[in-house]
Design a protein around this nucleic acid. Structure first.
Length: 279
DNA sequence: ATGCCTTTCCCAGAAAGA
């Protein structure tokens, strides 16, 4: 079973990129973030034509998450808002979508950015991680097959950013945020899939548009991750980051992250072959 | 470097992203 995640920075702006990526890579599930569109305006047709079930949780202009799956999903949870207890506007961000597919619980996750230390958004980010951890601990155990893919807006390790000393002052890699993520992952003893199989070497999933970091061959940040429970981590067979997608015309500032797990896909009438080569 | 670019709102320029 091959699952992928991509912060597309607008599904309408990235529609053709996503269609082409699906045709090339044939994932069983693709989680999307920052779709930036209300559910009624989500462009479903081309994805459904490829055989994907489209499950969406969006809002106008900001945020928005979705899953594209090769076959139906169940137990759709489209918000943790009810559990957060935050006053508006923080209780209505479309940031989490949970679905069960082929016996695996999959969450498409878009964590808050935080803006900068000291900002209200920074405090919100901290509380959001606490609340999300509480939600996950309440609903799952480390023995369940759970995968959380998305933009966590925090890079876990020094090798996940280009310049750790400079970045320690930048939102996404401050010591506080790294501590929040480290605490969050304890909720289900979650494993960072990429680093389980690739413990060495710099790796990035996002490059800044403003500095033209990718075009100049500079580093970015590995702020997108696939976190999995120990039960699912034992079934991991490969991980990948599709760097090529970031170099295309009009790219998202994030690229696609992929994992494969040894969970045979039984539930599908989808007849296209599953591509098994990784990137 | 308080910079760089991209997207949304919708038609001007602010807000947000990270």
């Amino acid at each position: 079973m091959k699952i992928a995640s991509w912060n597309v920075n607008s599904i309408r702006a990235r529609h053709d990129h996503v269609v082409n990526w699906l045709k090339t890579h044939n994932p069983d599930v693709l989680c999307l973030q920052e779709t930036k569109v209300e559910d009624g305006q989500f462009p479903k047709a081309a994805f459904e034509d490829l055989g994907y079930t489209v499950t969406i949780y969006g809002q106008k202009a900001y945020n928005g998450v979705a899953t594209l799956s090769r076959g139906p999903v169940s137990d759709i949870v489209s918000s943790i808002a009810d559990l957060t207890g935050f006053p508006p506007p923080f209780n209505d961000h479309a940031r989490v979508l949970g679905v069960t597919y082929n016996g695996v619980r999959i969450y498409s996750v878009y964590a808050p950015n935080g803006q900068e230390p000291g900002a209200p958004a920074f405090e919100f980010k901290q509380q959001w991680f606490k609340n999300f951890a509480a939600y996950l601990k309440l609903h799952h155990t480390p023995d369940d097959l759970v995968a959380l893919g998305g933009d966590f807006n925090i890079a876990p390790l020094e090798i996940d950013v280009a310049d750790p000393k400079r970045m320690a002052k930048a939102c996404g890699f401050t010591p506080e945020e790294r501590a929040w993520l480290a605490e969050w992952q304890k909720c289900l003893d979650l494993v960072d899939s990429y680093r389980k199989l690739q413990p060495e070497g710099n790796a990035y999933s996002w490059w800044d548009y403003r500095s033209k970091a990718f075009e100049r061959g500079r580093g970015g940040m590995r702020i997108d991750q696939w976190w999995v429970t120990p039960a699912l981590a034992s079934k991991l067979t490969s991980v990948g980051i599709d760097i090529d997608e970031r170099g295309k015309d009009k790219p998202s500032d994030h690229t696609v992250i992929i994992v494969e797990v040894d969970v045979p896909v039984a539930n599908t009438s989808f007849t296209k072959p599953i591509q098994t080569t990784l990137l």
